[in-house]
């Protein structure tokens, strides 16, 4: 049994202008100790989805099971207890601005009637964990965005939750800070075994931190599975749009301005150490025909060289096939890029 299970979850908002279907028949399974990414464009329904996981939003239909417990069956009091076992962090941190750092971290413990002394000791330990023990007496307004998010993480962990929900937790942060927050989340997952659900609109966040991902579009799950598999070969239109990224938009513009003619576009994905070999250069030497690199994105993700490229192959169909075979023989994933992405 998965730790978090969603069965046919729908959420409809009734408004005078008509109903808005934020979620439509969502099924999801999140296993214990997963770092599960939920990715989608703005307005796809991912924020509503994560709020259903602690019943900040009640689904209109369907059920949500946490550890086998149906949230809809809980009384108001039981639900509050359940919420205290699910930590949550937010895009805008949502710290108490009139309380200092340590009081913020103590807050969930004080709600649980933990004695002040005990709560403060636990808060100090957590601040040490997130690297902010020297800021205990500071007020949130004196901290940077990354530090505020660290305080929020410490606060979310104070009541020793089993699950940590992150709602666009890195969207207001710069790339370096994002990286360090994601490292911290991974560390927490590894060392405390806390299941983490990350809501984001950035594929890089999912690649960096998550082992599984669900792609949400228009209130529905477009596809779900292991990050590596989906990144290498996205099956859904929404998945391709997110993974191929803005590059495909640029390519379309280049094409429409007619400055470039390309026979066939393929996307290749580097896995393991293949991006350290000059595969493309070797292929060009081998076939004595140039290819167009339309987009390239490589980097070190989790200690493994990973990345992808979109290539424009020559117009000769036989040559195209031979090149695709060559790339596959060298251990690369090759997919044709369609017009619609």
């Amino acid at each position: 049994m998965a730790l978090i299970e969603l069965h046919g979850v729908s959420k409809t908002y009734k408004q005078p202008e008509g109903s808005v279907h934020a979620l439509k028949n969502v099924d999801l399974q999140i296993e214990k100790s997963d770092i599960f990414g939920i990715i989608g464009m703005s307005g796809a329904g991912k924020s509503t989805l994560v709020r259903c996981l602690n019943f900040l939003e009640r689904p209109t239909e369907g059920e949500i099971l946490i550890d086998g417990k149906n949230l809809a069956d809980l009384s108001e009091k039981e639900l509050r207890k359940q919420r205290s076992e699910t930590g949550m962090i937010f895009q805008h941190f949502n710290l108490l601005m009139q309380k200092n750092v340590i009081s913020n971290v103590c807050f969930p413990l004080r709600l649980l009637k933990v004695k002040r002394k005990e709560a403060e000791q636990r808060a100090l330990d957590l601040l040490k964990l997130v690297g902010l023990e020297d800021k205990a007496k500071a007020y949130p307004a004196q901290l940077s965005g990354g530090q505020k998010q660290r305080v929020a993480i410490a606060r979310a962990l104070a009541s020793s939750p089993k699950i940590l929900l992150c709602d666009e937790a890195t969207s207001a942060l710069d790339p370096q800070t994002t990286e360090s927050i994601l490292q911290l989340l991974k560390e927490i997952n590894r060392e405390m075994g806390i299941t983490i659900v990350i809501i984001t609109h950035q594929m890089s966040v999912v690649q960096e931190a998550c082992n599984k991902v669900a792609i949400i579009e228009d209130g529905q799950v477009a596809e779900t599975g292991e990050v590596e598999k989906i990144f290498n070969a996205p099956q859904s239109k929404a998945g391709r749009r997110l993974i191929y990224g803005e590059g495909s938009e640029a390519i379309r513009k280049m094409e429409s301005s007619n400055k470039m003619s390309v026979g066939k576009k393929v996307r290749i994905v580097f896995t393991r150490n293949s991006s350290f070999e000059p595969v493309i250069a070797n292929m060009i030497l081998h076939f004595r025909t140039p290819v167009n690199i339309l987009r390239a994105n490589t980097g070190n993700i989790g200690g493994v060289a990973k990345g992808d490229m979109i290539l424009g192959l020559p117009e000769d169909i036989r040559l195209q096939e031979e090149m695709e075979q060559y790339l596959q023989d060298h251990g690369l994933e090759v997919q044709e890029v369609e017009k619609d992405v």
Partner: peptide, 15 residues
Amino acid sequence: VDKGVIEAARSMGAS
């Protein structure tokens, strides 16, 4: 008062 802070308190089980 920022609605986000209220939501955060709610998420921690505040009545």
